[in-house]
């Protein structure tokens, strides 16, 4: 329908690439509702301050209270019994259903965690997956073994998930998210994360610091490595494949498909290894897992041994070849493919 208009005297739209119709409809609807609301609200116009918020006089500095959002948001309430049980219901109910329908993850590599899981009360660990999509967190929560799942905290970008009260509350409740400032991680943020680990919670932290902008990964930041060396919680490298195709950054609709989650061997900083080196090792481990997802364990191992693992961040050149390579990578992937491909006759207009 794009490009058609209901006006008789214009036969063709000038820009057949736009989906403008929805905007027109929305605008007309909003205009109607607005008119009705305006009429209904007319008597309210008389009521100024104190019924409405006061305006500040000119030249007056209104002291601003810290709004308690962003990385100052206190998520402690989300770890209280009531919130925990509510979250349990969310994770086992709607989230489970949603993850299965949207992403149907194939989880592998859990055998590498058995040593950690074999004890009664497994120690807290830090999961360090790559990051392509908002649904990564849901997929991760569902894929992580149950003994960690219910005491799992997610480090989430303070400026994105905690910038409005409702978002903050929802993230804290449903994901048990903790705000971290991805710009410069403050002392307070680090202390908070260390405390939740000390309390026996495991942590998901995306070392890339944000979702991939173009389908390729980004360089790992050192936060996870630093946290691990300070808390001696092991890092579990994880590679998630396919979520970027389902709901990547900038996407405005879900295209359900398949995903693969591959857990790697737990890592601990070696004696005398500094954070930077450890971080590099984590990044390499995730890259290796990415390779393993696309090829097989043996190929990936050999590639890793010879230093030929494809980098997560893709080829260095910055042109069409980068996109080209991405397409190649995606072809190799079994994940991300639509489960039911809807076959249609080509639209010939």
């Amino acid at each position: 329908m794009a490009g058609r208009t209901s006006h008789q005297y214009i036969r063709r739209g000038q820009r057949p690439d736009g989906a403008h119709r929805s905007i027109h409809v929305a605008q007309r609807a909003a205009s109607m509702v607005e008119g009705a609301v305006r009429t209904a609200a007319r008597p309210l116009a008389r009521y100024g301050f104190p019924y409405r918020r006061p305006t500040a006089p000119k030249h007056v500095v209104v002291p601003r209270k810290p709004n308690g959002l962003g990385d100052t948001y206190d998520t402690e309430w989300a770890r209280q019994p009531l919130a925990r049980s509510l979250r349990g219901v969310i994770i086992e109910g709607p989230m489970r259903l949603a993850v299965r329908t949207i992403a149907s993850p194939r989880v592998s590599g859990l055998d590498r965690l058995t040593d950690l899981l074999r004890v009664d009360n497994p120690r807290p660990v830090i999961f360090a997956p790559n990051h392509h999509s908002h649904i990564d967190t849901g997929v991760m929560i569902r894929s992580i073994p149950a003994s960690w799942r219910h005491e799992l905290v997610v480090a989430a970008a303070a400026d994105y998930f905690f910038d409005a009260r409702w978002k903050a509350a929802l993230s804290a409740l449903a994901l048990n998210a903790i705000p971290i400032d991805r710009g410069a991680t403050s002392r307070a943020t680090f202390d908070r994360l260390r405390d939740v680990i000390a309390d026996g919670n495991s942590l998901i932290i995306y070392p890339e610091g944000g979702r991939s902008p173009d389908g390729w990964g980004q360089d790992f930041k050192g936060g996870a490595a630093y946290l691990s060396t300070r808390t001696s919680a092991p890092i579990i490298p994880v590679h998630i494949d396919g979520t970027g195709e389902i709901f990547g950054k900038g996407a405005n609709r879900l295209s359900p498909g398949r995903t693969a989650v591959l857990f790697g061997t737990p890592l601990l900083a070696a004696e005398g290894e500094n954070t930077r080196r450890f971080n590099e090792r984590i990044e390499a481990a995730v890259a290796r897992l990415g390779d393993e997802t696309l090829t097989d364990w043996w190929t990936a191992t050999r590639n890793a041994a010879s230093g030929r693992s494809p980098k997560l961040s893709g080829p260095d050149h910055n042109s069409w070849r980068r996109q080209w390579r991405l397409g190649e990578k995606r072809r190799g992937s079994t994940a991300g493919i639509r489960r039911r491909r809807i076959r249609r006759w080509p639209d010939l207009g």
């Binding site: 929305a26 609807a29 909003a30 509702v33 607005e34 609301v37």
Partner: peptide
Amino acid sequence: IARFGAARVVGAV
């Protein structure tokens, strides 16, 4: 679009 619409409607009040 939802935000544009919401702005119009709330703006009436």
